[in-house]
Amino acid sequence: MEFLAGGHAEVRITRADVGKRVSVRRLTGGGAGEPTFTDAVGVLTSWDEGVLSITRRNGECVRIEESSLVAAKVVPARRSAATPHGVAPPSSTEPVRRRGPAATARELQQVAARGWPALETERLGEWTMRASGGFTRRANSVLPLGDPGVPLDTALERIGQWYDERGLPAVIVVATGRADTDEELAAALAERGWADERHTRVRISALAPLADAGADTPPGSAGGAPTRVALSREPDADWLALYNRTGEADRNDEAAQNARKVLTGGPSVWFATVHDPDGGTAAIGRLVVDGRWAGFAAVEVAPAARRQGLATLVMAALAERALTEGASAAYLQVEADNTGALAFYDRLGFTDHHGYHYRRARPGGGRH
């Protein structure tokens, strides 16, 4: 890893580089059996009170004391700069741009869980019980990745008790559709009376073509290029109002607070907003970057602003942001009966990877 400039190591990053992919070298002591320096590469996700947080490609978060930095720099984006029309010229990176992502269902489940983190978790063997005050099924369900460490009926009893204590229904998310998913668990839960609901498709795509998608939007219909999309680290009240799943917009409301915490959680999160000519919120979206993966969610367009290409512009702007942070693959989750959204993401090049659904215990029983 080379940091030298004019023969001297330099720290060439600042707090303004939060959200960028960086390479850092820090002093680690150099005691017996220890290296003098340690290197880390990843997204600089925060820099607060003298501590940097860097998220690596595998989702691991490394905390580094500012005082230990020896050298640091921003890692240039892999993708060449776009032309004014949003289309990158041919370059040596083009084969990477064409190559689609490959992943196991387990990898995507882990990435998606980090990108939509629950406020409270507890392990049960290799399963994770998650709760977030009821805000979304994803953040209030059990993620079963492997063996619960106890017989299934015992696990279900413990799960039921855990969710009862929090005033929430006992729900387990079950992945299906691939050799490495949970068809056996789905069948076992069905036998025990756990009802299925909310069938969803996990879809993936190469990331770079999404960043170019906005170039195909007619300038007259949506007002121009993706520069109309504003990106921020926090959702404002108008963003939350259009998303319409966060309860009351009052920051002091517990439900709204829970929603904000989930929405802003994750390795590197961005919120996109498109304003209409009157200053209203016309379209929104959410992005979380986690290593090579860019997760898209909450893409919504106000009824009066539909059929203008705004959802495409939002996706393109968020994809461009993810590319600058070193991501190369995209994923999202769409309910299986949302035909409009499925058709939209088809046009953007997304394909199905696997599916999942939720299994809920019957009221008053059915846990074992």
Rank of each mutant, 00 (worst) to 15 (best):
L210M: 04
E10A: 10
F344I: 12
D212Y: 02
E60M: 05
T28K: 09
A32C: 04
A9M: 14
E60C: 06
R25Y: 09
G223D: 02
G134D: 11
R26P: 02
Y356R: 08
L332H: 10
D238Y: 00
N140Y: 04
A304Y: 09
V43T: 08
V289G: 00
F344C: 07
A82Q: 14
L210H: 03
A32K: 12
L240T: 14
A40M: 08
V18Q: 07
T136G: 03
V173L: 09
A256V: 00
A118N: 05
G19V: 03
D236C: 05
W239F: 12
R99A: 10
V229I: 04
A5T: 14
L310K: 01
G19N: 06
R321Q: 15
G224Y: 12
V87L: 12
G366K: 10
E66Q: 09
G31H: 13
R25D: 05
G266W: 14
L207F: 06
L231G: 11
E184S: 10
R203I: 00
T55V: 07
G160Y: 06
T36E: 11
T351R: 02
Y356K: 05
I159Y: 03
Y358R: 00
G167P: 10
G29E: 08
G291D: 01
A341Y: 12
V70D: 15
A317C: 09
D164G: 08
R25G: 07
A283T: 04
A341R: 13
G59K: 01
P95C: 04
R198E: 11
H8S: 10
P84R: 10
A298M: 14
A77G: 15
R367P: 06
G29Q: 13
S221C: 07
V288C: 13
A9T: 10
E10D: 08
F3W: 15
Y356Q: 08
R260N: 03
F344M: 15
T217I: 15
S53H: 15
G220S: 14
D236A: 04
R203Y: 01
S205K: 04
R98D: 06
G30P: 09
K261G: 08
G340M: 12
T246Q: 02
D238K: 05
I172C: 04
I159T: 11
R286L: 07
G6D: 14
F296K: 08
D182W: 02
Y243N: 15
G365H: 03
R307S: 02
R367M: 09
H354C: 02
A272H: 05
D153A: 12
A187H: 14
L313R: 14
S92H: 12
I13M: 07
A9W: 12
V288H: 04
A297K: 08
A77D: 15
L185S: 10
R78F: 10
R307C: 02
G265P: 08
A330Y: 02
